[in-house]
Design a protein around this nucleic acid. Sequence first.
DNA 1: CTAGGGTTAG
Length: 664
Amino acid sequence: MRSLRVRDALVYHDHVLAIKSGLALSIFTCNQLIHNYSNNGFVQEARKLFDEMHQRNEFSWNAIIVAYIKAHNLTQARALFDSASHRDLVSYNSMLSAYVGADGYEAEALDFFAAMQSAHDSVGIDEITLTTMLNLTAKLGLVYHGKQIHSYMLKTANDSSKFATSSLIDMYSKCGSFHEACNVPSGCDGMADLVSKNAMIAACCREREMDMALNLFWKNHELNNIVSWNILLAGYVQNCYMEKALALFAEMIENGIGCDEHTLASVLSACSGLKCLKLGQCVHAWVLKNGCSSNQFISTGIIDLYCRCGNIRYAESVYAETVIKNPFAVASLITCYSSQGNMTEAQRHFDSLTERNYVAWTALFSGYVKSQQCEAVFKLFREYVSTKALVPQAKIVIHVLGACAIQAALGLGRQLHAYILRMRFVMDEKLRSALVDMYSKCGSIMHAEKMFRLVRDSNRDAILYNIMIAGYAHHGLENEAIQLFEEMSKKSVKPDAVTFVALLSACRHSGLVELGEKLFISMEEEYNVVPDNYHYACIVDMYGRANQLEKAVEFMRKIPIEIDATIWGAFLSVCQMSNNTDLVKQAEEKLLKIDIDNGSRYVQLANLYAAKGKWDEKGRIRKKMREKEAKKVAGCSWIYVADGIHVFTSGDTSHTKADAIYSI
DNA sequence: CTAGGGTTAG
């Protein structure tokens, strides 16, 4: 309705102007009309008027070029630019900023900038050109090029306007050079203009320096606008201070700052992070009332909120109503279905996307890995690699390596390693860690170690150490595991809960009771790591394997946390060592109360009674298991043969070639 | 005298 009225007004305006000026519109008037049409989204009308003009000047050409740029038609804009009879620096700058602002036109932007410097029109470049180029280097994260432009700006005295200052701060910050951003003259004190101050607050938030951001924010706070508040709000959300974000939002409302679409997008993220459905729904209602649901950040935020709060039906119904099927929203849905193990729906959503971006791909890969559907991961990866339009992403390769680790698919893992080298991926710690883990879990501890040693000392983080220590532990190399732990401590890399699970399980498998006890005590006292159920279970199991029932019982009594199925399970295997039926009964009762659906527990119990020759007890447990319809997944082996994967369980005769296999 | 291009937040 509103667009129609604007159109009528423009046409009417057109007539009035024509009559007033004796039917022949001046160039000036036509140029203004082209702008009016363009600003209201009527690019065709603008073009019609442009075509009808008898005379045109630079302003006319620029107006029509900008009209196409605003309509996101860069091809047409460029065609007009190339054919223009009048061109000036403004035409060039308009075209350049269009390329910089659009996604996927980075190369065109660079070429265009180069052409500007050698153009035969010789329009040259000015401060606007340079700030636009700063924007591009910021987008690409190329601090080296950003510095070159900065130097050029210094040389040509184009470095001190408020536009230059804010762009420089923004560029250095987005390129990861926070220090340089702080050193931009009159930028860091927040006393320059408001945009520069806001850019600086954003830089602090990016650097996770929230105290610094707050200091800046409250300096001359009466000058702050809604952008300043939104930056701080987004800063809290991105640094996971969700409660603080909501408190700031409340303050915004109290102070009459109001809120806009940026505000609401951040508030929705905070609600998702806190799984705060109530407030999130209030925002949803507000959005519906005020008609800003067409904003993609907002609709994605609402879908994400319902997904994270586990309400996938609402998420689906909101998604069904969105006009533009945003890949980010779909990624959220995929993640939600994946977490429920519903990969059919996850895949369906993925298939529905016409434009699959890297977020959607990553979500699907992650889902298949989490639900341990490794064959699906490998199949998806083949599809991904053959999609020529995609730039290969390290994050996705990391997921596929994870699937190799689960499946112990060493051959595939090695192929991936070769692929990584061939594609010249940057070997960062995450990629290297994934490779170490893959080699270790595929049984090739030697290659895992080799990869680990390739990481420079200073780049070895706790995660990498954990992977390698766990690798040694699984391969029965407890001395190497301990040694690496000592190296870790020496390099003052802080061990965490995962480190100690790996270490304690090395101790329990190799019967190093004293060392296990020592490590267990030191983890809390020296390293400030609070033991959780896995650590307690390790120690209980360690005593059990070492045949030290009394110590295990005593240890069980002292456990300060609620004893869960993991710990009772460990205790049950300790009972296997003793003849104390009372203890078994006790453990059984507790265990079945906690872990009623887990078939493994029933089987463990039944086997325990069977081993003691108590067949009636065994029968009783098996009957209970049938009553509860608890199922245990059978352990299995598998082998890759040329045409695919073959899975076997104990005593399995279901394979089509079972007779031949057994005879061999 | 009056026109067009560049900066900060999700």
